[in-house]
Amino acid sequence: MSDVTTAPRAAPRAPAMAMRVKVALILFALFAVLPPVAVALGDPFMVLIATRILAYAIAAMALDLILGFGAMVSFGHAAYLGFGTYAVAILSSYGVNDLLLQMLGAVVVSAAFALVTGAISLRTRGVYFIMITLAFGQMAFFFFISLSAYGGDDGYGLSSRSTIFGSDVLENDMTLYYVTLGFLIALFAACHRIVGSRFGRVLTGIRENRERMEAVGFPPFRYQLTAFVISACITSLAGVLLANQAEFVSPAFMSWHRSGELIVMVVFGGIGTLTGAIGGAVVALLLEEWLGALTHHWPLLFGLILVLMVLFSPRGITGLLERTGLWRARK
């Protein structure tokens, strides 16, 4: 399925990558100064919205790892977001409030689910893969809808946020924001390392030419499944943070619309760039906020933008910027 990729080819990669890291660092710096600016503007609620954006940025980046670098269009990634949110709800109801333990729970469940469903989905390719991941995502969605102990369809309000080593510092919105930002930066560094590693190169190689990689002696299935599981685990971490931001969990976090939105974020920023996924999450969510403030029929406009973007600027916002010369990622 090399037709999915529009990312730059391997040869001119290194400078483009350095450029992307630079842009990511600028983004992180902007994120870091946002809370004081928000307070100065007298709008501390902005920090809460920004926390949500950062959490989604983590999820979008995780999806980009397999979508952009592995050409696996997973349409069920919201399920892992959901596992993360429900890990917080379920574990805290049993008295396990520690953020790291909840993350551990989310990762274990997500890894198991991704391993089984990924192994089945990866036996197929192309259209089948998209539809099967979507179906498995829905399966998880229906499971949580019928889980009446945790509110079923209506969702479940959290009595408090997670604790870190017994301290309730996350109750402060500002702390939660910086912890989320910390995870985003750490996970970006991890993803960046993965992409640049031998493993990442094999993954990209399979994307470019599956048969050749197989002939050279790299079994695609094993590499793709590993990437799929890693991506699922990172996405579930985003879910844990998101539950803390919203202090509420519900199956809505894992509906197929959410999976679609994650793909939209990745594509908005240009696939296979990691940095683009972060920028895409920011743009997509801000666009939603802005259109939502404009009219309550915002999905109509959002959908229209999506259709027009696919028809006229297939390389996302990066592509638009490149065309106008503001961004030269391909150099």
Binding site: I263, V267, P299, V307, V310
Partner: peptide, 28 residues
């Protein structure tokens, strides 16, 4: 018609956009 020779990813995105538009249009 414009999606035939495009990648599956583009098709997913464009038709996902159509779903959002259609649901909202019906509501209107």
């Amino acid at each position: 018609r414009r999606l035939y020779d495009r990648s599956h990813l583009d098709q997913v995105l464009a038709t996902f956009g159509l779903v959002m538009m259609a649901n909202e249009t019906v509501k209107i």
